[in-house]
């Protein structure tokens, strides 16, 4: 292994980070080139692998389309409300589990194993309870983000240094003062991490629900492009959605590290 690195270092007069960036650029260019060749070769259906410029054009078309912003706002609103409802419930559940060993033993296994089950299968029930409109999508997102927040907050509270809590007791803090002045600041990181994970799967839950049964939102727009076989537009919508999901994740990730 050391031999290889010596050879690598000998070959290159460029610094490691420069070569890294060059390799990245080369990979991106190669992927686009292979894609473009595949699109023009006629080996694939042109609709499945459309030329890059068609995808860019579709993307541009989406970004100037008022209907896109209307639907995007609806989806954003659903995700936001879902995050508030599911997040608050998850946060409170996490605190209850974190402070009580009894509740932890009683309910944490349930939470721990229900957490990773596929939530979307609850959707038919949610439609019956909350209707075919935004209600069932919000419920879907809320259920999704409840679990990571509850688990993350409970684990965070358990990892708090007991000295901090004893200091609070010496100051005769009430339960709510303890939560507000000691627990919440001490578990800032797990909270943001829980929100980050929760937001990620709330986006998935909400948009998937929209693709299944809806007449508005980004998920609905995507499944419409499938129904009308407008694949270039589908690529454009998926790219926008992925940029939004990965971007919001990275943004929250930045908060945890400060």
């Amino acid at each position: 292994m050391s031999l290889i690195s010596t050879v690598e270092a000998g070959q290159a007069r460029l610094s490691f980070s420069t070569r890294k960036n060059l390799l990245r650029a080369a990979i991106v260019i190669a992927v686009i080139a292979v894609w473009e060749m595949a699109a023009r070769s006629g080996l694939f259906y042109r609709d499945v692998v459309p030329p890059v410029e068609n995808i860019v054009a579709a993307l541009a078309g989406i970004l100037v389309d008022p209907a896109f912003y209307r639907n995007f706002a609806i989806t954003l609103g659903e995700i936001g409300v879902a995050l508030i409802i599911g997040g608050t419930l998850g946060f409170l559940t996490g605190i209850a589990l974190g402070v009580s060993r009894f509740l932890t033993k009683a309910y944490e296994p349930l939470l721990f194993y229900l957490g990773p089950t596929p939530k979307i299968v609850f959707f038919p029930v949610l439609i019956m309870w909350f209707g075919v409109g935004s209600g069932s999508k919000i419920a879907m997102g809320a259920i999704s983000c409840f679990f990571p927040l509850a688990i993350s907050v409970a684990a965070g509270i358990r990892s708090i240094d007991p000295v901090l809590i004893r200091v609070g007791r010496s100051f005769r803090l009430s339960t709510w003062q303890t939560v507000a002045k000691i627990y919440v600041p001490a578990i800032r990181e797990p909270i943001i991490n829980g929100i980050r994970l929760g937001l990620g799967i709330a986006i998935i839950g909400t948009v998937l629900a929209e693709t299944k049964l809806s007449n508005q939102g980004i998920g609905f727009m995507i499944i419409q492009t499938y129904a009308t076989f407008n694949i270039e537009r589908m690529y454009g919508l998926l790219i926008t959605l992925f940029v939004f999901a990965i971007g919001s994740n990275a943004l929250l990730h930045r908060f945890t590290r400060r």
């Binding site: 890294k20 960036n21 990245r24 990979i27 990620g200 998935i204 998937l208 959605l241 999901a245």
Partner: peptide, 22 residues
């Protein structure tokens, strides 16, 4: 590894299942 490890991590955060119509 230096070039693409962060891409792989970002890929893990991507909501891939949403691309199911594709």
């Amino acid at each position: 590894r230096a070039a693409i490890e962060t891409w792989v991590a970002a890929f893990a955060a991507a909501p891939l299942v949403l691309a199911y119509p594709l």
